[in-house]
Amino acid sequence: MKREDLTKLRLELAKFVGEVLKDHAEQIWSDELWQIEATDESGLILFVMHVSASDAPATRRLVPATPAGV
């Protein structure tokens, strides 16, 4: 794969993650790690992006926990 194609793929992965965050904002706050992988045609993983969100200690007692499955 050409360097330009890899750069384009990285940008597309970032845009995709942005859309996932926008469309599933409530689920992001379930204190779980999300992992999104970009692969080539053969299934070789080329890029991995990790997304996590958690309440800081200062707000944990103030913000209600997100119910499982939301």
Rank of each mutant, 00 (worst) to 15 (best):
M1R: 00
M1W: 01
K2T: 13
K2F: 11
R3I: 12
E4Y: 04
E4M: 13
E4A: 10
D5K: 03
D5F: 00
D5H: 03
D5S: 08
T7D: 14
T7M: 08
T7V: 12
K8Y: 07
K8R: 15
L9K: 05
L9N: 00
R10D: 11
R10M: 08
R10W: 01
L11I: 02
L11V: 05
L11W: 03
E12A: 15
L13F: 02
L13T: 02
L13H: 02
A14K: 07
A14S: 15
A14Y: 04
F16K: 10
F16P: 01
V17T: 15
V17C: 12
V17A: 07
V17L: 04
V17Q: 04
G18P: 01
E19I: 05
E19L: 09
E19V: 06
E19S: 12
V20D: 07
L21G: 11
L21I: 11
K22Q: 15
K22T: 15
K22D: 14
K22I: 05
K22C: 04
D23Q: 14
H24C: 11
H24L: 08
A25Q: 09
E26T: 09
E26H: 11
E26D: 06
E26Y: 04
Q27T: 08
Q27P: 03
Q27S: 12
I28K: 14
W29E: 06
W29G: 11
W29S: 13
W29F: 13
S30G: 15
S30C: 10
S30W: 01
D31N: 09
D31C: 05
E32Q: 15
E32S: 10
E32I: 10
E32T: 08
L33E: 14
Q35K: 05
Q35W: 00
I36D: 01
I36R: 02
E37T: 13
E37Q: 14
A38L: 09
A38P: 02
T39D: 05
T39S: 05
T39C: 06
T39H: 04
T39N: 04
T39G: 02
D40H: 01
E41K: 05
S42A: 06
S42H: 03
G43R: 00
G43W: 02
L44I: 00
L44T: 12
I45V: 15
I45D: 02
L46M: 09
F47Q: 03
M49Y: 10
M49W: 05
M49A: 13
V51E: 13
V51N: 09
V51G: 04
S52K: 05
S52R: 15
S52V: 01
S54G: 07
S54L: 05
S54H: 12
S54M: 03
S54A: 13
D55N: 14
D55T: 10
D55L: 08
D55Q: 08
A56L: 14
A56S: 05
A56Q: 12
A58V: 11
A58K: 07
A58T: 11
T59Y: 11
T59Q: 05
R60T: 14
R61C: 09
L62G: 06
L62P: 02
L62H: 15
L62C: 09
L62I: 10
V63I: 14
V63N: 14
V63P: 00
V63L: 12
P64H: 07
P64E: 11
P64Y: 12
A65I: 08
T66K: 13
T66Y: 02
T66G: 00
T66F: 01
P67V: 07
P67L: 11
P67I: 05
A68M: 07
G69H: 04
G69T: 04
G69Q: 02
G69W: 00
G69P: 01
V70M: 11
V70P: 02
